[in-house]
């Protein structure tokens, strides 16, 4: 067998209830991105601006679930991605947004948009285009099956690189001390 171009793996990424910090950390793998692009091509991702996820080999999801649209997008990813990865502290455990979980959502919205310090002529946003918030913020595995977890806030570029190169080589990703961080 010679010179048969290996089919590139198709990868989708998205940030749900996240801060895009994990996506910034993907970019932090720097010139290794060029090597990565010899093995993968992007489907839906902030990097391509494709709006819906098609059939993919790997889906990488940053952020947890704080509203109805997050759940919709996560299910779209699960339906289309052979391997689904929860990337970062929010996707893995809810993260910072989940720190509102002990508060009542109505009280939260009223404090932020009506009664909070410095709020003038406030109103609770109700545009039909805005997805409804969930009463609690959930990690991804609360709603769909997740195949791999990549913790970190964000996972370092080296951790992402190790994870992806393991996965692309067909190994179970293994971070080990120094790359495995929850913070």
């Amino acid at each position: 067998m010679t010179a048969v171009a290996k089919k590139k793996l198709r990868v989708a990424t998205v940030s749900l209830a996240g801060c895009f910090g994990c996506h910034m950390s993907i970019l932090d793998i720097d010139e290794r991105l060029i090597e990565l692009l010899e093995h993968i091509e992007f489907d839906r991702s902030p990097l391509t601006d494709i709006k819906t996820c098609g059939p993919c080999d790997i889906g990488i999801v940053e952020g947890g679930l704080c509203n109805a649209e997050n759940v919709h997008v996560l299910r779209e990813f699960r339906q289309n991605c052979r391997i689904l990865v929860a990337m970062g502290a929010c996707a893995v455990g809810g993260g910072l947004p989940a720190q509102r979980n002990h508060l009542d959502i109505r009280d939260c919205l009223q404090t932020v948009y009506l009664t909070g310090m410095g709020v003038q002529r406030g109103f609770i946003p109700n545009d039909p285009e805005l997805p409804l918030p969930l009463d609690k913020v959930h990690p991804l595995h609360d709603v769909v099956k997740i195949d791999y977890f990549l913790p970190g806030c964000p996972p370092s570029a080296d951790a992402i690189w190790k994870f992806l190169t393991d996965l692309l080589a067909g190994r179970t990703p293994s971070l080990g001390h120094g790359l495995l961080h929850y913070d």
Binding site: A86, V92, G93, G94, A98, N101, H102, K136, H138, P139, H141, D142, I146, Y148, F149, L150, P151, S174, H177, L180, H181, Y182
Partner: peptide, 20 residues
């Protein structure tokens, strides 16, 4: 956290309770 690193815990696995 350190014991979890030692044991290669990557997620809480179960559905979180989020107690108050």
């Amino acid at each position: 956290q350190a014991v979890a690193y030692e044991l290669d815990v990557l997620s809480a696995h179960f559905n979180p309770i989020f107690p108050d």
